[in-house]
């Protein structure tokens, strides 16, 4: 298993080393987001909203972790369909779990590399210290990483089932989750029905927890328990969904056609 996971990691390492555009993409959008949201936060802090930089810039950096993890898994499957390599992978003795482990590890790197850059830039440009979240930072990051994996595995299942016609989901699904995750505002501002949706997302508990820490209320144990409990559920559900989709595409004969579309 280790050899095959290393083989898959080698493939993604070659891919990033070869593609300047792909490497730039790791940094370009997060930095652009940081500039826009950061300066907006500075402005808001000056006119009326204390701690706007801490709330918004912190949220932006943490959100990017979830987004990058989801993208790493889903894009890996989508790209292998684009370049007609998916069949080569499925006729190699690579188990779906190995593919998911390898792409999840890629997700960690895709989240960590821009994450470090954004943290440094936020410090330089806005005097914002992400590390000021202290002991809460590690569980927050871990929780977003796990949810990013879960969403990525779910989306990869959809891509496997619907092929290139479902490509929009690669980019779209995180943005469906974003408003309900209360990334940039407290969950209390959402209408009642949306609040119900928000509370079943682990990301909501992380961002609520982050705001509580910034407000000096400290890390709430219940927040972390809720986030990790929900993550366990979504990881299991995502994996079962992927396995179900794989079974369906093999029954329907779509897997053979995927790489040949």
């Amino acid at each position: 298993m280790a050899s095959r996971v290393l083989g898959l990691l080698l493939r993604y390492a070659y891919l990033y080393r070869r593609s300047l555009a792909r490497s730039m993409e790791l940094f370009f959008w997060p930095v652009m987001d940081l500039l826009v949201w950061g300066f907006l936060s500075v402005y808001l802090e000056r006119v009326a909203a204390p701690r706007a930089v801490s709330y918004l810039v912190g949220a932006l950096i943490l959100w990017d972790v979830l987004y990058r993890c989801q993208q790493a898994i889903t894009l890996a499957v989508t790209e292998d369909i684009w370049v007609k390599n998916i069949i080569n992978l499925f006729v190699a003795p690579v188990r779906p779990a190995e593919l998911m482990v390898a792409t999840s590890i890629v997700g960690v790197f895709k989240a960590a590399i821009p994450g470090v850059l954004l943290t440094v830039l936020a410090l330089v440009l806005y005097d914002y210290h992400l590390l000021a979240l202290g002991g809460a930072l590690a569980p927050f990051l871990a929780s977003l990483l796990l949810f990013g994996w879960a969403v990525g595995i779910f989306t990869a299942g959809l891509i496997l089932r619907f092929g290139q016609s479902a490509e929009a989901l690669v980019w779209g699904i995180p943005f469906v989750l974003q408003p309900f995750s209360a990334v940039f505002y407290p969950v209390a501002v959402l209408p009642g029905w949306a609040r119900t949706v928000a509370l079943v997302l682990p990301s909501t508990h992380v961002f609520e927890g982050m705001r509580a820490v910034v407000a000096g209320e400290g890390l709430r144990g219940a927040t972390l328990i809720a986030a990790f409990g929900l993550n366990a559920f979504y990881l299991l559900a995502g994996s079962l969904f992927f396995a179900w989709m794989l079974r369906r595409v093999r029954e329907k004969g779509y897997l053979g056609k995927l790489g040949m579309e």
């Binding site: 891919l15 070869r18 593609s19 790209e79 370049v83 007609k84 390599n85 069949i87 080569n88």
Partner: peptide, 8 residues
């Protein structure tokens, strides 16, 4: 009808 990653 299948290929290998073109950018490698």
């Amino acid at each position: 009808y299948i290929s290998l990653p073109t950018n490698l």
